[in-house]
């Protein structure tokens, strides 16, 4: 019964909506956490140390998010393949009535976001792309041993214009993905009617845009600050 429910067309839509909501919520938390880099080294390094010192909690959280992302991706591809099979022969002439471009390119924006995610992990989490980041350490009050200097790592990371631009383009893509995803999740979970549908569409765009602003301000501000400091000196 449960298996049948999850494999059904509607069941998979719920899965997309629920996992999408969780991943989106994480992005909001991630953004708020990273805002602390704008408040200086002590603030962000204390926050990073607080997260790093709770290994079991950190790893269960990562495992949970990974599972959510995996479900979102797998079910998304499964649905996409199903949908392609549902119309084996295409229209020779087709006029789209009201489906937005974002809604028609979800699989591509999703794939690009995944590619960026891999890059992001290699860049700042595993630090394979910049092994020198691992050597950045600093001190924070109340802790004896030196801790990871996330402040310096982020400043160094976003010193490069190409890297900063990649991050900004990636979060723009994420916002684009969410501009359809947010209104869509309400529909999929059955929380939409004619009275709220226009509001939900605008709400989706507004939230996506705010997330884009919030996430892009970090690489933009760090890049501008570091370059500006050098220029002024």
């Amino acid at each position: 019964m449960f298996k049948q429910f999850v494999a059904s067309s509607l069941g998979r839509k719920y899965l997309m909506a629920l996992t999408g909501t969780i991943l989106f919520s994480f992005m909001v938390v991630h953004m708020l956490g990273n805002f602390q880099v704008l408040l200086g080294p002590e603030q962000i390094n204390t926050y990073a140390h607080m997260l790093q010192s709770k290994k079991p909690l950190l790893w269960s959280f990562r495992l949970f998010l990974g599972l959510m992302a995996l479900t979102h991706i797998t079910v998304g591809i499964w649905l996409w393949l199903d949908n392609r099979r549902a119309r084996p022969d295409h229209y020779r002439q087709e006029r789209t009535q009201q489906a937005g471009l974002a809604s028609r390119t979800m699989i591509y924006s999703g794939a690009l976001i995944l590619a960026f995610f891999v890059y992001h992990i290699l860049h700042f989490t595993l630090r394979w792309l910049n092994p020198e980041f691992a050597g950045f350490t600093g001190r924070i009050p109340g802790v004896e041993e030196p801790v990871a200097d996330v402040y310096r790592m982020m400043n160094q990371g976003f010193f490069d214009a190409g890297v900063s631009l990649t991050y900004i383009v990636a979060v723009a893509l994420l916002a684009w993905h969410l501009s359809h995803g947010i209104p869509s999740l309400f529909q999929s979970l059955g929380l939409r009617n004619d009275a709220v549908s226009r509001f939900l569409d605008r709400f989706g765009w507004a939230v996506a845009f705010l997330l884009f602003l919030g996430l892009s301000i970090i690489p933009a501000a760090l890049f501008a600050a570091v370059r500006g400091a050098i220029y002024l000196r």
């Binding site: 067309s9 998979r12 839509k13 649905l79 199903d82 949908n83 099979r85 549902a86 119309r87 789209t96 009535q97 009201q98 489906a99 937005g100 809604s103 028609r104 979800m106 359809h180 209104p183 869509s184 529909q187 999929s188």
Partner: peptide, 11 residues
Amino acid sequence: EHFGNCTNQYE
């Protein structure tokens, strides 16, 4: 019956 799935585009 092999119908596709809704992607909330409202065509």
